[in-house]
Nucleic acid binder design. Structure first.
Lengths: 243, 243
DNA sequence: GAGTGGTCTAGACCACGGT
DNA sequence: CCGTGGTCTAGACCACTCC
């Protein structure tokens, strides 16, 4: 064997993932045992186990105590279950890969103070100032999504309509250097309300998908509450559940 | 301090979680640093870090290198974002907590051989035998969900209409001793088809939520493909995204 | 009983954040 | 610069699977 650069868990993970996808382990449907991987990569158990953990997080393998690390069956059809496992940006990024034309209309832009009702909805404290923004996302000429954003104006200051027209997420991360640490989401199917039927190209459908997101910075503060109402038949969410 | 039983990471996790939810760390919005936790629980870094990792998996805390472990803000409103983070059983369990009356109608029960078209849909190999089952879930008198199941009959043998009427998941786990290792899901909003409008209590809605699940046993084999079509306004899914 | 992953200990050094 | 979590090493013992 030639001289090999030090293997950290990231390179072990990358190497194993490439091999799995290339089918190198498809006959036994098992990864080599930990001791073999330790020897091959000239590393410690820590690094090997961390790499395997990352593969398991992606739904590629499953560890069984006393047996080994099993590969999960995958076919061309089931590949799509592995995509999109996590994207913090809005629905915009959800169709990355397809070559789509995007356009944004800012239909409403206000700075308001949170009252009791809005606090109940958004979990923002009563009395704080927020930006309330509504934008329509037009994808290939179809009015596909309406984003209803509320940003805590103390944590995300100085948003302008021009920024809203481009990308608020770019502004938050690149300009304000705010780190988007965690996003929690709920997904529902709702009967379309007036705002939806007036704004979206629903055709004959009278329901919408509703993705409700709350986002936290790396100080643990919730800086955003957003509802994204989207038309049927166009968007997919994926979820992985492990036991 | 009194004699303390050996602390494993599970007890550390449980203790910290209880304290977080009780607000014990709400003033600083930080967990104690690792060394303090090691001293308090008389344990190793491994156990402390594993406990913190589990808290982070649930969306309670977020670790920042060089700073510490930050608590994420939580209010009564945002509590529901933390529930349901993983349930392998069908939609049935999704409303646990509410006291609901459940009833199941088996509307179709067949054993068939996978053809090219069904293989394309389910990712099962052409030629293998599967159980094809359709069941309606009636919740408090409302026909709320239609489950369209395909089970690999070689991996899940001897299903009967009587089992389908009760609980196939109970049969799989308790009777067959098959371990449900991983479930991969896709969520969509679809325009209602004939089967949906004829079967579900959609009222004036003409769309459905569609939860598509593929499930794997602990040998890595896909034993199930299921579509659960559900009525609007009644079901919620949650998702956690970390950076 | 042999093989395997899960838990745990006791260290070490590194990378990042804040002062 | 100091304090902090992230990575890594080298061991040990335990719990489970399978023969």
């Amino acid at each position: 064997m030639t001289i090999m650069a030090k293997n950290n868990f990231e390179t072990i993970y990358t190497t194993l993932k490439a091999r799995i996808l290339a089918g190198d382990y498809s006959i036994k449907m098992r990864l080599p045992i930990e001791d073999e991987l330790i020897a091959e990569f000239d590393t410690s158990r820590y690094a090997v186990r961390k790499a395997i953990q990352k593969l398991a997080d992606e739904g590629l393998v499953y560890s069984v105590k006393g047996r080994g690390v099993v590969l999960l069956e995958h076919t061309p059809q089931t590949q799509q279950f592995n995509l999109n496992l996590s994207r913090t940006t809005g629905l915009k990024a959800m169709n990355a890969g397809r070559n789509l034309d995007y356009q944004t209309d800012v239909v409403s832009f206000k700075q308001i103070i949170v009252d009791a009702e809005l606090s109940e909805q958004t979990a923002f404290e009563v009395g704080i100032p927020v930006y309330a923004i509504q934008r329509v996302r037009i994808i290939n000429g179809t009015r596909a999504v309406i984003d209803i954003n509320y940003f805590n104006a103390q944590l995300i200051p100085d948003i302008t309509p021009s920024i809203a027209k481009k990308s608020i997420y770019d502004y938050i991360q690149k300009k304000l250097k705010v780190k988007i640490a965690v996003v929690k989401r709920m997904l529902r199917v709702d009967t379309a309300q007036t705002v939806d039927t007036q704004t979206l190209d629903l055709e004959n459908n009278n329901c919408i998908g509703n993705m409700i997101s709350i986002s936290f910075n790396d100080a643990g503060r919730q800086f955003e509450y957003t509802e994204s109402h989207f038309i049927p038949n166009e968007f997919i969410f994926t979820q992985l559940i492990r036991n």
